[in-house]
């Protein structure tokens, strides 16, 4: 086996994949946003743990995070959650075989279930886009009161 060359793409293969459709990149962003949300939860627990050290420590840490950098981070988190939740719903529907039609005879040019569920993909992405823009308006209000 030592004479074989491992040709797996690795994590880089999630991101760069070549000329594939939207769904493969949606898969990558789902993982990326999932990891981002996980990172936020770790930081969230770290920050809220300061409550245990008394009121002064809590006030100090809260004023520390009330900065444009963290507001921007919060907005990125908001974008990640909006995308992750809505795309997650699409994946959940797909994993239960919904909105994908029925098996067909493979007659060239082949049609796949991806094409049949693509309207759902676009609806979900449009919804995520609307939510992200609405959140963006709130962010603008923070910077320009």
């Amino acid at each position: 086996m030592g004479r074989l060359r491992d040709n797996r793409l690795g994590i880089a293969g999630w991101g760069y994949a070549g000329r594939y459709g939207f769904e493969r990149y949606a898969y990558f962003f789902q993982r990326l946003t999932g990891l981002g949300i996980l990172l936020y939860f770790s930081l969230h627990i770290f920050v809220t743990a300061y409550r245990a050290f008394g009121e002064q420590a809590w006030t100090r840490v809260m004023s520390g995070v009330d900065k444009p950098f963290f507001k921007l981070g919060e907005y990125m988190l908001f974008m990640a959650v909006a995308y992750h939740a809505l795309n997650g719903l699409r994946v959940l529907f797909s994993e239960l075989g919904l909105f994908m039609g029925k098996p067909i005879r493979p007659v060239y040019p082949y049609e796949t279930s991806l094409k049949r569920q693509r309207p759902l993909f676009f609806i979900v992405m449009a919804l995520a886009g609307v939510i992200i823009v609405m959140g963006g308006l709130d962010l603008i209000r923070y910077f320009r009161p």
């Binding site: 594939y20 493969r24 994908m100 098996p103 493979p106 060239y108 796949t112």
Partner: peptide, 25 residues
């Protein structure tokens, strides 16, 4: 998680991603 690349690339129109979702259902 239904990336669907297998179905897109399949040269025989087998749609493996669809089969997997139906199997999971």
């Amino acid at each position: 998680h239904y990336a669907g690349a297998c179905s897109e690339a399949c040269p025989k129109g087998v749609d493996p991603a669809f089969a997997i979702q139906l199997f999971r259902k």
